[in-house]
Each structure stands twice: as C-alpha cells, then as structure tokens.
Design a binder for these strands. Sequence first.
DNA 1: TCTGGGGTCCTAGGACCC
DNA 2: TCTGGGGTCCTAGGACCC
Length: 396
Amino acid sequence: MDAFYASVEWLRYPQLKGLPMVIGGGRRREDELIARLNTERPERSWTAADLADIPVDFFPLLRDYVGRGVITTASYAARPFGIGSAMGLMKAARLCPQAILLPADFDEYRRCSRAFKQVIQGIAPVMEDRGIDEVYIDFTHVPGGQREGGRVLARLIQKSIFQATGLTCSIGVAPNKLLAKMASEFNKPNGISIVHEANLQTLIWPLPCRKINGIGPKADAKLQAHGITTIGELAARERSWLVEHFGRSYGAWLHDAAHGRDERPVVTESEPVSMSRETTFDRDLHAVHDKAELGAIFTRLAEQVAADLQRKGYVGKTIGIKLRYTDFKIATRDTTVAEHTNDARRIRQVAGQCLKRVPLDRRLRLLGVRVGSLVKAAELAGAKSSEEDLDLPLFQ
DNA sequence: TCTGGGGTCCTAGGACCC
DNA sequence: TCTGGGGTCCTAGGACCC
C-alpha cells in the first residue's frame, strides 16, 4: 500500500492531501479530537461527521512535538525534506517543522488493512499476509493471471482495492517473492512493475544491496567494508567467498538472492509464535527509585498480553521480559513453565521472577512482557480432555 | 536530535537423554 | 584412563521486517 497510514488519514481528512505530514507519536482516538475541537473551536458544534471540515491550521505541527516518538509514515510531500519511517520525531521536526503531525490510529489502519486484503482474496485467494500494509499474491492459477505478464490482473486488483477503500497500492509482478518485492518499489505510488528473469542484470543488479529484503543495516555495512555496494557486485562474488565471510546459511542465501533465485512459496496460513506488549517510558525510570510506577506499568503490560492471548484464543508457556537501558542495550530473560497459560496474574508472576535475573542498577527506558511457545487454547483443552480420557477405566 | 511497537527467524551454548 | 554421537529443549542475544 502507498504511504498507508497517511493515505488512510486522507480518507477522513481530504483537506490534508498533498501536504507534508507525518504519522507517529502515540495513539489517537477520534472522540478526543472532537472533544478538543469543541473546546478550541466552539463557534460550531463538532461531531464525527465533520472531520473533513476541520481547518488545516487546527492540526498540530511537528515543530510543537515533545517526546520520544518516531515517524511511522511520512507523506510523499514530506519525504523531500529528508524525513522518513523510523526517524525520531524530534529530529524530523528540525528538518520539516511545518509538517502536520497526526498520532497513529491503529484501529482504523487495521480496519482498512482487513478491507484491502479481503478484496485481494476475492480475486486471488493464494495470498500471504506480510503485515498491515503488504501481501504476496500467487498469480499462477488465477484466471487471466498470465495475461500481459500479469499486468491485467495487477490492474484489476488496484482498481478493485481503490473502489472498495479509496486507497492506492503498488504492485510488483515477478517469478518469485524476492523479485516481486523489489519490483513493487519501482513505480510507487499507484504503479505496476513487471520484472522477468531476463531483466535481472538491467533492473536489479544496479541497485544497492540494501534493496534486497533480508539485507539490513548490519549486513550492508559489512558488504560495503568488502567493497560490495550493488547487487551486481554481490552477484559477482563466488558463492564460496560469501559463505566464508557470512556463514554457510546467510552466505549461500546472499548468493542466491543476488542472482534473483528464491523458491519460497506463498504461505496463506500461519500460527503466531509469540505475543508481546512493550512500552517506552516518557522518562527513564529506575527500578528502585521509581519502583511503584514501574510495578504498575509491569502489571498493565502483563494484563494487556493476557487480554491479547484471550481475545485471540491462545495460551503460551514461555514467559519473558525485555528491558531497554538508557544506552539502548537490550536484555531479555524468559522462563518456560510446565502449564500453558493466558492468565494475567500468572504471567505477571513468572515475568516478575524473570525480572530478578537481570541487572537493575541502571535506569530503564523500556519494559516489555512476552508470552511465547503458543498453542491454540482450544487445542490444549482437547489434549487435556484426551489425557483425562486415558485415566478412565478401559472397560466401562 | 536521539532512536516505537509488534513480530519472525537464526545462532550458539548448555542441559539432558538415549 | 579417557572419555561417542546423535537428538531435543531451553535460554539469550541479535538481525531484520512492517
């Protein structure tokens, strides 16, 4: 999806379209916005139906932001100022103070996410969920999926999504997921790009290695230290050289990726492995000095994870914590318990034991609670009752 | 000017078992 | 006196992605 969060906001606030704008800095609820409108613009009685009438100068600006948030989405008009995803808002404010700042409304983004995915599945059922704004689609067996190299189907999907949601997307069509992902970036926004194996040298090899999904900042820095900047330069290295310097698994994968090889299937179903909640504090907290505040946050995180597990019908047996110190160093501790659980008090209790195993002499900026080794609660109930069945006398 | 929140997967060492 | 070769599970950290 193109600038997904910003685009969703434009559906409600078309007056902001085309302006430099960033999403980030906490959660927002529409009723709070309306309450603020009625306080600050009392000349009119505002309701949820009036959002498109809110004057542009009502919206908060990046220059007034104070806090620890990051940008989750920057509008295309904001990007020339050098700001983009994951950048701290305080830094972004220096580069583009006049940008409008909207806190994120994840409930609404999730609603739109479900909507566009439903449209796709109605057309091409073999779809892999890759997060809130991205999917892989297998065109292979979709009627018409091969016409014009996939362009006809891609256009149909774009048009159908736009009709259903008012949102635009960019589609890359290629023989595998690796190349399709890269292709999808070629023509943003609202574009289609088709990459064949034969285009590897002309379209893919000139790109920086970082464009490969799976080469992050660390691997890129290491490649650059070896004088490898482009995917073509990576492809020119011997497989054995890459294995020698990057390990058997990652080295071989780098070699395959640089040659456009990727056999991964489009996976339509998967089960979650873990669920977690974490929070960065407004100010750094000390385990001793801010014990009460920290304890309350800890309990809340445990309750939130438990609620997530219960709502989605999972139980887990590996319970852990995550700390981030002021120097950004992370520590994790976890414990696997005998019985699966989704109980807030049990999670809080076991997480509390984990907390005792980590150094707490320095200030913290983040605390998290995680539950892993998940299974469906219903499946566990089934296993339990069949265990109980075994206790029954054989002849009854 | 500091750097969110929610995930997945991989690696590596140690315990433990057969 | 010198100690194999699997395998699984657990834990901690780290890279990477949306």
